[in-house]
Amino acid sequence: MAFTPTKETYSGQVYPVTIGIGDGEVTLGGENVLPFHSFEGVLPNRPVIAFEIQDVPPADWPENVRRPFEAVSNDPVKWAKYCQDELKAKTIALRLVGTHPDRENRTPEEASKTVSDVLSAVNVPLIILGSNHSEKDSPVLVAASEAAKGKNCVIGKAQESNYKTIAAAAMANNHKLIAMSELDINLSKQLNILINQMGFEKERIITDPMCSALGYGLEYTYSVMERIRLAALTQNDTTMQPPMLGDVGMYVWKVKETQAPESDLPQWGAAEERGIAWEAVTAMSLLIAGAELLVMRHPKAVEAVENTIEELMQG
């Protein structure tokens, strides 16, 4: 019997989404095949990794991921420049975690100043994230959107409870928008539809179906992403065709495996390497599931994932 490869033809395509301006511009998505299936379709753009920075020093990050940024992380501008110039970041994700009421409770005005300062210091596209406090994120992200007007940023995250104000602000200031729902393909579809019904184009959305770390439900995220991608490609479901985000660093550097010192758990091996591997493996798995954009923290994890992406694209 001769072997005939079973190739798929896909009816849909992921929207190509361009972020940033000028020579810093980056495009993600655009493919018409499952992740890295270049043997049966085209993948015009490689997945993009954004380095995560914060508006306040990362006191909540475990030491092993704080250390690489020790010299710069007391100042978001320095931190952003370090990521762009030294680490060759193609994109930066600024998380305004200091605005959370239980943290520094910084005001929307303070947040918008940070955004302006960072934007005037770097050339690469900026992803602007709130503190994940759904009430506070509304005024913070509205202010941030205005401060970033004309820079074609990504604003996030809009959730079911606050999407109206945030989507309106992103629309008025010409940004892209992250729509986040909690690990359920139907919720994710519904939120994209609601946002679209406000007049916000589907082609400007990035879907975040919610991340989970290796060993903490990664398989849920994996399957939700895989199902979203299949709906987009095989059923040509346009509400599922925006690129997807994996907010990896935040979820990974919270779990026990990335924190516990080797002295407590000798059978788990060196803590630093373990943490880096945990972040990199989580990231890689989500790329295989269908993510086009990742937010990550540790430079060594990013480097390893970039090298592997290269091997997946070029062979």
């Binding site: 591997a277 493996v281 390893a304």
Partner: peptide
């Protein structure tokens, strides 16, 4: 040669 790179290639095999 690089064990982290190896782990990532392994994760691709495991998923696929």
């Amino acid at each position: 040669d690089d064990s982290l790179h190896e782990a990532l290639i392994a994760s691709i095999g495991i998923a696929k």
